[in-house]
């Protein structure tokens, strides 16, 4: 088996102790994925495995064997920014930028969760096929990604803009 990372097959590391985060950064030099707390509290290391956003710091590379991993490097082609990245710039959705790859990966998967009908803790009607996307919904759904610069308002606006454009 192998791990498919941004479309390319890579052999999993021989040492089972290696986290997916360290594997991406130290072995493959995909340094877009960031080390924040390294204990599941900040979301900076968020990547997407088989369509679901997860924390690469608490995932062993061995657990990803046979699966498909998408990192921030895999979200845009040939250096072109995708609409979410453009919206983060337009809305000042970051200052230092350290949490941004995790924010973008999380937001990418979050928008797909909304389309699939995933509810959140603040969704008033659990029976609704699809939650109405409000700023409160975005804040709750993005609460796993901390921004120490305090760019959360811009992040919410950026995600809202992309969601609105997609729905139009």
């Amino acid at each position: 088996m192998a791990i498919r990372i941004n479309g390319a097959e890579v052999q999993a590391p021989g040492d089972a102790r290696v986290s997916l985060l360290d594997f991406l950064r130290e072995h493959l030099h995909l340094t877009g994925t960031k080390v924040g707390c390294n204990q599941g509290a900040c979301g900076a290391c968020t990547v997407i495995i088989d369509g679901e956003r997860v924390l690469s710091c608490l995932t062993l590379a061995a657990q990803a064997d046979g699966r498909s991993v998408t990192t921030i490097e895999g979200l845009s082609a040939d250096g072109a920014l995708n609409p979410l990245q453009v919206a983060f710039i337009e809305h000042d959705g970051f200052q230092c930028g350290y949490c941004t790859p995790g924010q973008i990966c999380a937001a990418t998967a979050m928008l797909q969760e909304i389309e699939r009908g995933m509810p959140s803790y603040v969704t008033a009607d659990l029976a609704a096929e699809r939650a109405t996307l409000t700023a409160q919904e975005i804040r709750e759904r993005m609460s796993g990604n901390l921004c120490r610069c305090g760019a959360h308002n811009g992040i919410v606006e950026a995600i809202m803009q992309v969601a609105t454009e997609r729905a139009a």
């Binding site: 997860v54 995933m118 959140s120 803790y121 659990l126």
Partner: peptide, 26 residues
């Protein structure tokens, strides 16, 4: 997210959704 949990056991759906973050719940 399961339809039967949401309709018949909303307390379970909400309890899980109150825990951790979306990444960790996944």
């Amino acid at each position: 997210a399961h339809p039967l949990v949401r309709s018949r056991y909303p307390l379970l759906s909400r309890a899980i959704l109150a825990g951790a973050s979306a990444q960790i719940r996944n």
